[in-house]
């Protein structure tokens, strides 16, 4: 029975880190679940790249490690996992059911739907920074293609540097192509709108929060991730504008 709690704590924390949750939250969830399972002593060490769980239960010490290489941004999953860990640690749900629910979480296959929403985000930003109606329409088209390509690039290389660079280069290139066809538009608004959803907001916020909660290693790692993504986006745009 305690094995199930161990499995669940490891699975849930890894999923939490994978979907972009904070490090302290992943540690807290695992700790609460193991305490609900009746562990006498729990120690957890989580990083953005993996998690170690140690628990003492009826005289035996259990240690498990799991590493993590792929990271995505999915706010719905963070919220789902958070409430799931509450349910389990308050005893309202048994761990076997929780494990089957986490395994049933949909993978990132709905990229078409996400790309449609992301392209409307870009178009709204184009309008917000002062673009007109024609630029709004063009921004939808440009951002849609760019987001589809970013989704494919993420499958090839899991590091955000690569996919963000491809996305920003493509956005700027497509915007310049639009300028060739329609000479009286302002491509700045289209490009800015296109790069806004790519900018590493979640990584930055998590870096700050992790550092404040004392997870210095996680904070630093996420900070570097955010900085690299921002540099990739800026360099991609600069590259195309300089041609």
């Amino acid at each position: 029975m305690f094995d199930l709690y161990l499995d669940l704590s490891l699975l849930l924390s890894t999923a939490m880190l994978k979907n972009g949750g904070e490090t302290y939250r992943a540690e807290e969830c695992a700790k609460n679940i193991l305490s609900a399972g009746g562990a006498d002593e729990v120690e957890i060490l989580a990083f953005p790249t993996g998690i170690t769980v140690m628990a003492r239960y009826s005289g035996k010490t259990y240690t498990r490690v799991r590493s993590l290489k792929v990271r995505v941004n999915n706010l719905g999953n963070i919220d789902f996992l958070n409430s799931l860990s509450r349910e389990v640690s308050s005893g309202r749900m048994n761990p076997a059911e929780a494990i089957s629910r986490i395994n049933a979480l949909p993978e990132q296959k709905d990229f078409l739907k996400r790309s449609v929403f992301a392209c409307f985000t870009s178009a709204a930003f184009t309008l917000m920074f002062g673009g007109n109606f024609l630029e709004f329409i063009l921004a939808i088209a440009v951002a849609f293609i760019a987001q589809l390509v970013v989704a494919q690039l993420k499958k090839i290389g899991s590091i955000t540097f690569f996919s963000n660079m491809g996305g920003s280069i493509l956005t700027a290139l497509l915007a310049r192509l639009c300028l060739l066809l329609l000479p009286d538009i302002n491509i700045s608004y289209i490009i800015i709108g296109g790069i806004m959803p790519l900018l590493p907001g979640l990584a930055t916020i998590n870096a700050i929060r992790d550092t404040l909660y004392g997870d210095l290693v996680s904070g630093g790692a996420r900070g570097i991730d955010a900085l690299l993504s921002a540099i990739a986006i800026a360099a991609g745009v600069g590259l195309v504008l300089a041609i």
């Binding site: 999915n74 985000t121 709204a124």
Partner: peptide, 11 residues
Amino acid sequence: ASLFFGLSLSA
């Protein structure tokens, strides 16, 4: 913009 951004991250 905020709304669609949230939707694109399946908030």
